[in-house]
């Protein structure tokens, strides 16, 4: 018999239909790196519920414009703005969450020594940034629209344009790593990562919404993208 904690169950197990199922065809690491045994259930105690309240001295935010190089030169590609809210499962804004993004350049290549594709690198595009959500849980980045790229040794599977997101919220159990897709891209429907989520509504929630151009005040295309971290009543006030 597992003793119960006196803390409320703020974090219920995930709905499996809304989470990726493995293995994924053509992605060998989804076999080699995922346990053969189902995970064990554990009681949720204080360590799992809590997390660092302020990581800004360690993971410094403020790098929210990927579209300009450190020297101020514009990156090649379609200038875009991605903005949205980070919420908990009750729809409350998650304040002071750290949001990290990284992505390929306009030609579909990452500035990473492990990306050995021969597509061009853009000297003015590094491709990663980090921001902090404000009091309303809002984040925003300027960047360029990433290109698609073929996955090696996968039978001509192409990754659609996507932006990687890593969100550090108020507790260990509210951690989220995900990817954002672009609306209307024909590669979305065939993407094996996006399709690893069985629930079509869950897949749709990973696709950003385009903001009508009439509503955008500058010369960029704008997207809205909300993310929901696990947990209810999970945004504790700062002491």
């Amino acid at each position: 018999m597992i003793p119960r904690t006196d803390l409320p169950d703020r974090f219920l197990p995930y709905d499996e239909g809304g989470q990726p199922q493995v293995p994924i065809e053509g992605y060998a690491n989804t076999v080699r790196r995922n346990p053969s045994r189902p995970p064990f259930r554990r009681p949720v105690t204080r360590t799992e519920l809590t997390g660092p309240l302020d990581l800004t001295a360690k993971l410094r935010p403020g790098d929210d414009n990927l579209a300009l190089s450190p020297e101020g030169r514009p990156a090649m590609g379609q200038l875009i703005h991605i903005a949205g809210q980070v919420l908990d499962e009750d729809g409350r804004p998650v304040r002071h969450a750290i949001v990290e993004i990284w992505q390929a350049n306009a030609a579909g290549r990452y500035r990473n020594p492990l990306d050995r594709r021969d597509a061009p690198l853009d000297p003015d595009f590094i491709g990663n940034g980090r921001a902090l959500t404000d009091g309303e849980g809002r984040y925003a980045f300027f960047t360029i629209r990433p290109g698609a790229y073929p996955v090696p040794d996968s039978g001509r599977w192409w990754r659609p344009p996507h932006v990687h997101f890593s969100v550090l919220g108020p507790g260990s159990l509210s951690r989220l790593v995900t990817q954002m897709y672009f609306p209307g891209d024909p590669l979305n429907a065939r993407d094996r990562l996006l399709n690893a989520l069985p629930d079509p509504e869950a897949r749709a929630r990973l696709v950003a919404q385009a903001v009508p151009t009439e509503e955008v005040e500058g010369e960029w295309l704008a997207y809205r993208h909300a993310m929901v971290l696990r947990g209810r009543h999970a945004t504790p006030p700062l002491p």
């Binding site: 809304g18 990726p20 989804t30 869950a202 993310m227 929901v228």
Partner: peptide
């Protein structure tokens, strides 16, 4: 729970 948690993906 009005808002379903966003789906995970690999890094």
């Amino acid at each position: 729970a009005p808002m379903p948690a966003t789906g995970w993906h690999t890094i």
